[in-house]
Design a protein around this nucleic acid. Structure first.
Lengths: 158, 158
DNA sequence: TTGTTGAACGGTAATCATTGTTGCTATGAT
DNA sequence: ATCATAGCAACAATGATTACCGTTCAACAA
């Protein structure tokens, strides 16, 4: 993701208007190093501007996704996360208990479909999601989900 | 997924009751070779029993997921799909236009995280989702003309 | 066979994430 | 400064999923 000022330029260059709300969202995105949801961005922005609509956050995030500055990421937790890290190719590691997502920058073998395996599809991208327990959730007894801190439902493996 | 009679046995063995609604859902699942949603199963079951609650379908599907007989599958289309094929390890091919999901049984190199890359996670599974346009959607989109199946380009991370 | 018990049922209403509608406001170009 | 229009906030609505609640019925034992 580019810096806020560059994003403003990009928006203008694409016929979109640069509003105070959008600039605030740009800054909130730059400040978040992880994978924020629309709601968490909205909470962050609301601290600075108290009447920002959640819909405005959604629209700006979708605009940024269309422009390729961030990536929408759905790992099965029921809400869409947004990934500002689009410069560096990476995959994701998802905790099946609390739902937190971490980037995986470790080198992985290039994924290639064997000839004829694409079933006529025009395949454009491949994403790998690793699922497991994060260090924090491993501390609690794995056999007994005693007190889940977050009520994200577990997601079954493929 | 096991046969309906075996599923009934399994339910009884786990202290769950075998109702007519559940047996009907078992049969509907066995009859569907693809990746049904809760709603499509509900429509199928409703043809046979006209007063089956959608909640009952959800509960039975979750029970089957807990027992490992089917797998919940969320590929970012907004609804949860259920995959009766849990015996054979496979990945998924998702059409980004119409959302249909196909199994990929082609052999892929085993995905394995290098030592120290797991960031303290207890990694349990890895799933690959390939995204593209299915043959039907390619026909209606001149921007992505059909190409010979042999020259599928290698695909990188999303 | 019959009685008992609690899991499971159907119907409805609620919840959560997300999107549409509408009338007003402010951006960016003239 | 003016002005057309994209964008805004405040709702209301949507679609998938789940909770509530009074009733029913599968499982098991007498």
């Amino acid at each position: 993701m580019k810096a806020p000022e560059e994003l403003s330029e990009l928006f203008r260059a694409n016929g979109r208007k640069v509003t105070a709300q959008r600039q605030c969202i740009f800054r909130a995105l730059q400040g978040s190093s992880d994978h924020p949801s629309a709601d968490s961005i909205h909470r962050q922005v609301s601290r600075e501007m108290d009447t920002v609509s959640l819909k405005t956050v959604y629209q700006t995030l979708h605009d940024l996704t269309d422009l390729g500055e961030i990536a929408a990421l759905d790992v099965g937790t029921g809400l869409t996360l947004f990934d500002p890290n689009v410069e560096q190719a990476h995959h994701h590691l998802v905790c099946r208990r609390c739902g937190t997502v971490r980037d995986l920058t470790a080198p992985l073998p290039e994924i290639r479909l064997p000839d004829g395996a694409a079933l006529g599809y025009d395949v454009g991208s491949a994403e790998i999601v690793f699922r497991g327990l994060c260090p924090d959730c491993r501390v609690s007894d794995p056999a007994h989900p005693a007190s889940p801190l977050s009520d994200v439902p577990p997601v079954g493996p493929a």
